[in-house]
Design a protein around this nucleic acid. Sequence first.
DNA 1: CTCCTTTAGGTATCTAGACGAGTGGGCGAG
DNA 2: CTCGCCCACTCGTCTAGATACCTAAAGGAG
Lengths: 262, 262
Amino acid sequence: MSPLPSGLLGDLDPTSDRAVFRQIADQLREAIDRGRFREGEKLPSEADLVDHFGVSRMTVRNAFSILQGEGLVHAEHGRGVFVRPRPPVRRLASDRFARRHREQGKSAFIVEADAAGSHPQVDSLEVKEEKASQDVSVRLGSVRRVLARRRRYLLDGRPVEFATSYLPLDIARGTPIAEPNPGPGGIYARLEELGHRLDHFEEEIRARMPSPAEVKTLRLAAGVPVIHLIRTAFDTEGRAVEVCDTVMAADAYVLSYQLPAT
Amino acid sequence: MSPLPSGLLGDLDPTSDRAVFRQIADQLREAIDRGRFREGEKLPSEADLVDHFGVSRMTVRNAFSILQGEGLVHAEHGRGVFVRPRPPVRRLASDRFARRHREQGKSAFIVEADAAGSHPQVDSLEVKEEKASQDVSVRLGSVRRVLARRRRYLLDGRPVEFATSYLPLDIARGTPIAEPNPGPGGIYARLEELGHRLDHFEEEIRARMPSPAEVKTLRLAAGVPVIHLIRTAFDTEGRAVEVCDTVMAADAYVLSYQLPAT
DNA sequence: CTCCTTTAGGTATCTAGACGAGTGGGCGAG
DNA sequence: CTCGCCCACTCGTCTAGATACCTAAAGGAG
């Protein structure tokens, strides 16, 4: 219950139009931006701020909830409110599906994470046949039923990505693609062995706030959006042979693309 | 003050561990997902829900604030809480900087928006020389000072994107690039006329919650993330000739990329 | 020394009410 | 009929608690 170090935070401006809880949020945000509070460091407790600013507790909580929505801080029940550390990001380069990266025994995710010194895991693998959603059906060219391969990726124990691949049954059924482990080089290598030489990929990227289910699956903190990536793989005959729907924790990724200036 | 139509929303489960305000949020979310409330439609007022569920007003507001954070609804002072309509999105294709799109008199943004039947505007144009930030300096290859071109893009009056281009002074100073209007084909056309034939672009994509300044500039609703795109243009000699830093309202964009399978 | 209990200090949830301020419809004055 | 005012409804902000539950460290029992 010791008072706040003076100078750490200023006073309220009672003449301001800005709501008190916003002013408090502003001060905390600025203090964080200036490095007065470092990553992972504990902010003053609600009670401290109630004393310091002379406001009621709900007002302080309101201020914290703004900062949580911005993804700046996170609260831990019984411990305090902390500056949210920025996790290490995974860079996805646009050549990550190039054939030369496909000749190894392990999946691209594992290889890359190992190289970066992280501990990778693949999780909740599920492979089954199912009815194609409207969207997937359109992308694959009016396919009714598909093989769906679901998996979740973790880095150092933290879930970072959740993906489902959809393949037309006439391509995938009865092949290694329908096995939980499709073997070295992943399903793209298998597709090429089956005569579907890959020509190009198309990726669609959106960003939005996660659904409650996504929050759970990716163990997302408040104020962390997701990147929603839908990739379609085309073979040299122009046929769509796979659609991969991926939801990524936005704070764990940077996507990188190279575009020709043609 | 008429009671809610019965059946629209259910009851609370007092035996559940789930907090009351979460249960209320769950019910509203589900009702929205099921289409019981359509886009733009008004949800029951706080007072209605207080009566229906027999809880205090703060509890209802807490529920609404969850849905706001998810970007599902937005509140209008004095009017009510509404299901947030999904705005039309702008598709950015990876060939949008191809030379063939550059031969016209107007900027790519204007041309494309006109074609889509929207009313485009470019705004708050500012062109000035300034000190390069650490990041920009690194990307441009240890450049100290740069020409910065700032602008904001609006569609049908709504700000959707805010961008700054940085160019090395030795390239841009005294050229049409330093003019507010660089002329047909934009600065990429001018760069090529100046002998910097463009070879490729590199784009880095992140998603995060907006800063308060970004909320203001893009007039973002609660629960709308931003897409942060940093593009670097390289000429045929491998020199970085431009860095463009763009912040987009995530609900207004889909990015689309084509990748070779090489 | 180890393990359990206590306790202080945190956040989480909820209540009940007060006042402020934006919106829009109804109604009365002209 | 029109304009302007008023009022009901709505969300925004703030207060002042009460209770629950979590965490970590201190202290006591064994």
